[in-house]
């Protein structure tokens, strides 16, 4: 079992990355647009906010700039795909690779520490008077909860409804007068804005922004979405998004558990996590086929 300390840590990580998971949900499930930009927009948000904070701006200002930067990155992926007809996966990889260089330019170096800087976490600890391992998860839960509510509201508006339909049936929504290209550009932008905000939270939590911190983001996001759907169901979009956020927390708890596993001399290291997560996603993606294959065989 994991300690309370590790559990609170998992909640802290799960909610900080939860914003990223909501962003991934928006592209993968709502827009049906597999977007790998997130591997670059997460460190982008971290870099932008770290530079802003260490230059004395209020952390909220830094986070606001991070959201804008993420939105622009996502919108560029959307434009590459819709206006220049580049395959969505390739378009997002191009943006992601470019962001590696851009992130180093933004920070002036591959990583940047926030030690001693006045982060939102420090301010909230002061404000709430709670111990850090309680106040940080509460702060992140509040932020990701607010983002979840905003996204639920957004997808209930006329505009949001058109976005839901864009991913489901592009022909239909075009025939109803919606500019599908604009929807995709805005939607992928919005998604990456949330991912960048997630990156800004993670950087403040870890006390540093690093150009390599985004590796595997998309896989962790997908794993969280799938875990959420499997455990909590997806009868409608509202429930599915709540499930995705909860899935993010469960995923981090699962990782904390995995890191505690000892088999003789063998133990997982944090660098094994990408492999474990990728395997988890493969199993989740393949199991429906295996299940239906088994059912067919039984029926035959």
């Amino acid at each position: 079992m994991i300690s309370l300390y590790a559990f609170m840590g998992a909640i802290e990580q799960g909610t900080a990355f939860g914003l990223m998971v909501l962003g991934v949900y928006l592209t993968f499930r709502v827009l049906d647009f597999p977007d790998l930009t997130v591997d670059g927009s997460l460190p982008l948000g971290a870099a932008v906010s770290a530079v802003a904070i260490s230059n004395g701006y209020h952390p909220l200002v830094g986070m606001g700039i991070a959201v804008c930067a993420g939105f622009i990155a996502g919108a560029i992926t959307g434009i590459l795909n819709t206006k220049f007809k580049i395959l969505h996966l390739l378009a997002s990889i191009l943006t992601m690779i470019s962001l590696y260089s851009i992130n180093i330019r933004i920070m002036g170096r591959p990583n940047m520490t926030l030690l001693g800087a006045d982060t939102l976490i420090d301010q909230f600890i002061e404000l709430s008077g709670l111990a850090p391992h309680f106040s940080t998860p509460i702060l992140f839960a509040l932020i990701s909860g607010a983002a979840l509510l905003a996204l639920i509201w957004f997808l209930k508006t006329s505009f949001g409804l058109a976005m839901l339909a864009t991913g489901d049936n592009p022909e239909m929504i075009t025939s109803l007068g919606v500019n599908r290209d604009m929807m995709i550009i805005f939607g992928v932008g919005l998604s990456n804005g949330m991912v960048a905000l997630s990156g800004a939270l993670v950087a403040q939590n870890q006390g540093a922004a690093d150009v390599n911190m985004g590796i595997g983001t998309i896989i962790a996001g997908l794993a969280s979405v799938i875990i959420g759907e499997t455990l909590f169901g997806k009868p409608n979009v509202t429930r599915a998004m709540l499930a995705a956020l909860l899935g993010s927390i469960v995923y981090r708890i699962a990782i904390a558990l995995a890191l505690g596993v000892r088999l003789g001399d063998f133990a997982f290291t944090p660098s094994d996590l990408n492999l474990v997560t990728a395997a988890l996603v493969v199993v989740a993606l393949v199991s429906p086929q295996i299940k239906s294959g088994l059912l067919k065989r039984r029926a035959a």
Binding site: F154, K156, T157, S158, F159, G160, L161, A162, A165, I173, L176, G177, V178
Partner: peptide, 16 residues
């Protein structure tokens, strides 16, 4: 509701 908004601006008002 999507069809009712054919050719109109789709804003941030409630969809249905």
């Amino acid at each position: 509701a999507l069809a009712l908004k054919r050719g109109k601006r789709r804003g941030l008002g409630l969809g249905v």
